[in-house]
Amino acid sequence: MFIVALCSTCGGVGRTTVTAGLSSALGRKGRRVLAIDLDPQNMLGLHLGINFLSDGLATSPGDTWMETSWRTSDGVDFVPFGNPSADVAWQLELELKRDPGWLSQRLSRLDFPDEGIVLIDSARLPSRWGEAARHAADLTLFLGHPDPGSLGGFDALSRGSKSQDNIAFLLNDVDPTRTLHRDALLLARNRWPDTCLQYPIHRDEAVAEALAHGQSIFDYAIRAQAAHDLQGVATWLLNRHSMTAR
């Protein structure tokens, strides 16, 4: 299986939205997809069609977390974070500090096909959850907005990370009518040509509207630009997977 963690150094860049969109796109392509919510906000369920899930990864000891999974109509299996009490959450963070490979061990025990894809939505870095997701992942997809803050974050990551093979940068919410966004996109593409995805995800009101309607964007507005971009990123992920598998 191919494990992809979606992280970011800034907040509000759309990790959960993109995780939901990517998993929906991959599910529609007929792939086996598992989406895991590793963010205490517990919002992935809302994006995938169900809200207020109290049982999830954080509330299930041992391997019972698999029983808390749900399946969407797109064929996506997803595991919510759950609504743990403060004590339980604190205990879990201590356990993650002790054992960073906590998640990867659990995933390795999962019966999942080789060509399946696991998407992990994590809390914003720095955080234990984000670190855990990165640790478990074959590829970490860093999201950002086309503004100096996110680009600065990308810069730090590209300097800090020893191997550039397992990270990638993705720009979200790009509005081509804004000069700053256009310039940021150009800068990112030119500065990190191998790491930055050539396809950004454009700003599109349809994303928020789809969420408001409780629908996947592909059901709500298949012709939306954001839908097209998400499909492009999904295809890129699949290509990356087949390249690394060889």
């Binding site: 454009h202 700003r203 509207e209 012709r223 939306a224 630009q225």
Partner: peptide, 10 residues
């Protein structure tokens, strides 16, 4: 890009 914020792939 339309006035209401929607973006269409055409």
């Amino acid at each position: 890009q339309l006035g209401d914020g929607r973006a269409l792939h055409v």
